[in-house]
C-alpha cells in the first residue's frame, strides 16, 4: 500500500493560551512558542506506519509512506522526524502559513496525489491552530474519492479499508475502496485501532505513537526530501478565506472555593440559582 500523509506544523498547542493578539488585532502572535507537529498528523503518520507493516515485525516495511507538508523551510525539521519514525520519503511545498487556506492546501495536495498516485491519503481531522477540520473533506471531493473522517479504527481489507468513525451519538462504520482519503481522530493510536492485512488481529500496539530510535534519526538525514514551490502545484489561486482581524476571548475569572458539599449546594441554589 502506498500512503501519502499530510503533516502540518503548528504552534505548541499545550501553550495556546500564551498566544497574543497584536495590537489593532491584525495578527495572532504565536511569539516564542515552539513549533510542533499537529498532534492529529502525528497520529495519521502512526496509522500510516501501522498499515504498512506487520505489527510483529515493524522493521520490515511493506509499503511506501510519503510525508508531505506545506510550510516554510523550518518545517523540514518535522519532516525529518517523520522520516526517522519510518516514512520513506518526504515532500515540502514551500509556503508561509499566511499564503495558505484550507482550499489552497487541498488544491496543492490534489496535484501531489495526481503525481504520486497513492492508494490512501491519511491526514489529521483538524489542525489545532486554525481548528477548521476541512482539508481532508475538500481534498476528497476535488479528487472524487470516498472518505472517512474522524477515524477511530482502520482495518485493511482487500482493495480497501473498513473504518469506524467517531460521530455524534456513537460509532459509524464504513467500507472504502481505494483510492481514498481518511482523516484520523484521537483514538486511532490506541493499541488495537489499526490493522494491516499482515498484522494478526490478536496483536496489540503500544498506546500512542512510536518514537524514532537514535540510529534512525541519523539515517533519516539520507532519506529523500524534495522541495516544491506552491506555483509548481497550483497556479494563480488567491486566498478564499481572509482574516480581517483577531480578538482575544472574554476572560473568565476564578470564583470561590467552597468548603463543603453543603456550601456548594447552598451556593448553587441561592447564589447561582441553577438548581
Amino acid at each position: 500500500m502506498k500512503i501519502l500523509v499530510a503533516l502540518k506544523r503548528v504552534a505548541d498547542p499545550d501553550n495556546a493560551n500564551k498566544i497574543r493578539i497584536v495590537a489593532g488585532g491584525e495578527k495572532v502572535d504565536t511569539g516564542n512558542l515552539e513549533w510542533k507537529l499537529n498532534p492529529f498528523d502525528e497520529y495519521a503518520l502512526e496509522a500510516a506506519l501501522r498499515l504498512t507493516e506487520d505489527g510483529k515485525a515493524p522493521k520490515q516495511r511493506l509499503g511506501e509512506v510519503v510525508a508531505v507538508t506545506l510550510g516554510p523551510k523550518e518545517a523540514e525539521t518535522n519532516l525529518r522526524s517523520a522520516l526517522a519514525t519510518g516514512a520513506d520519503r518526504a515532500i515540502r511545498v514551500e509556503a508561509q502559513d499566511e499564503q495558505l487556506d484550507g482550499h489552497l492546501v487541498a488544491l496543492a495536495l490534489r496535484k501531489l496525489v495526481e503525481e504520486e498516485r497513492p492508494d490512501l491519503v491519511l491526514m489529521g481531522k483538524q489542525a489545532v491552530d486554525g481548528d477548521t477540520n476541512q482539508v481532508g473533506q475538500i481534498l476528497a471531493e476535488l479528487l472524487d474519492y470516498p472518505m472517512a473522517t474522524f477515524a477511530a479504527t482502520i482495518e485493511e481489507e482487500a482493495q480497501g479499508l473498513r473504518v469506524s468513525r467517531e460521530v455524534d451519538g456513537g460509532v459509524c462504520v464504513v467500507r472504502l475502496k481505494f483510492p481514498a482519503v481518511v482523516t484520523v481522530d484521537l483514538r486511532i493510536v490506541a493499541p488495537a485501532s489499526v490493522y494491516s492485512q499482515k498484522t494478526d488481529r490478536a496483536f496489540k500496539y503500544n498506546d500512542g505513537v512510536r518514537f524514532a530510535p537514535l540510529p534512525a534519526i541519523m539515517q533519516a538525514k539520507k532519506k529523500k526530501l524534495d522541495v516544491k514551490t506552491l506555483a509548481d502545484l497550483v497556479v494563480n489561486t488567491p486566498l478564499r478565506t481572509r482574516y480581517r482581524k483577531f480578538a482575544p476571548p472574554a476572560t473568565r475569572r476564578a470564583g470561590a472555593k467552597v468548603k463543603s458539599v453543603a456550601e456548594l449546594v447552598d451556593k448553587l441554589a441561592n447564589e447561582a440559582k441553577v438548581i
Binding site: 493560551n17 493578539i21 495572532v28 481572509r242 480581517r244 483577531f246 480578538a247 482575544p248
Partner: peptide, 20 residues
C-alpha cells in the same frame, strides 16, 4: 458577511470573509 471563528483552542477569535 463576516464570520467569527474560535481558533487556537478558543484562545483567539478570527473574523474572516469569504471571497466566493
Amino acid at each position: 458577511l463576516t464570520l467569527k471563528r474560535p481558533m487556537y483552542a478558543g484562545n483567539a477569535y478570527g473574523f474572516c470573509t469569504l471571497s466566493t
